[in-house]
Design a protein around this nucleic acid. Structure first.
Length: 260
DNA sequence: ATGTCGTGGACGCCACGA
């Protein structure tokens, strides 16, 4: 079974590359973030033509998450219990049962700056997520949480820790919130890099990708039992290259678990 | 690092978010 997650930074802008990537990579389940489109406008037909079912949680210009699956898509849940909003609940979380796994696609608030109300919102959102996942962890299917966490869990997850002093994504409260998620009994899967360091995001500006100045913020958390069945995990940096890429690369996880 | 993208308004650039 092949599972993947990708912040596409607009599903419309990325559609040609997304379709090409799905056809070439053939994930069984793919979590998407920053689709930036209302559900009614989502390019469903292009994805269905590749043999996938879709679950969507998008409300327009910002945010937006999706799960596409060719191994079943059941018990779809948008948002989660007591999800905070800004001020209203945004399109940042979606879960479904696919091929015997309980799969979440999440887009954690960015936080902007440490003194921003968006940072407070980010921490509150992560606290609520922890409680929702605590419940979800106790259910029947192995849990997999995929998405853009907007957190670099360790200093190794940014190209230069000194450049991040005083920034979001690396602060102690954010890292503690992430550690609490792992503390539920999940593994932070570390995919291999195809080249260079195992980053998943490189800013469009200033030639950051070319210089290797990236971050590992697109993460996969997985039940120990499921993680034990991983045969390969990699970051597809090829998808960050060329014309019209997202600023994030997909993370791909292969499991020997048969879809059921 | 602040160098680029994405969106949508009412455009033909700007504001905003990342």
């Amino acid at each position: 079974m092949r599972l993947a997650t990708w912040n596409v930074n607009s599903v419309v802008a990325r559609l040609p590359r997304l379709v090409e990537w799905i056809a070439a990579t053939t994930p069984d389940v793919l979590c998407l973030q920053e689709t930036k489109i209302a559900d009614a406008a989502f390019p469903r037909a292009e994805i269905e033509a590749l043999g996938y079912e879709l679950a969507l949680n998008g409300d327009g210009r910002w945010n937006g998450v999706a799960i596409i699956s060719r191994v079943g898509l059941e018990n779809v849940t948008r948002s989660f219990d007591r999800e905070p909003g800004f001020p209203g609940v945004e399109s940042r979380a979606l879960s479904a049962t696919c091929g015997g796994l309980r799969v979440w696609s999440i887009y954690v608030p960015n936080g902007r700056t440490l003194d921003s109300e968006h940072y407070t919102y980010k921490l509150e959102w992560l606290r609520a997520l922890l409680e929702a996942l605590r419940v979800e962890k106790s259910r029947a299917f192995p849990l997999v949480v995929c998405g853009d966490f907007n957190i670099a869990p360790a200093d190794d997850d940014v190209w230069d820790p000194a450049a991040f002093v005083g920034s979001t994504h690396v602060s102690v409260p954010e890292r503690e919130a992430f550690a609490s998620l792992v503390g539920l009994g999940l593994d932070d899967i570390h995919p291999r890099a195809m080249k260079g360091r195992p980053f998943t995001y490189w800013d469009y500006r200033a030639g950051m990708f070319h210089q290797g100045n990236g971050m590992r913020i697109d993460l996969v958390l997985m039940d120990h039992a499921a993680a034990a069945r991983i045969t390969d995990a990699y970051i597809d940096r090829e998808a960050r290259k060329g014309k019209g890429p997202s600023d994030h690369a997909p993370v791909v996880i292969d499991l020997d678990q048969p879809a059921r």
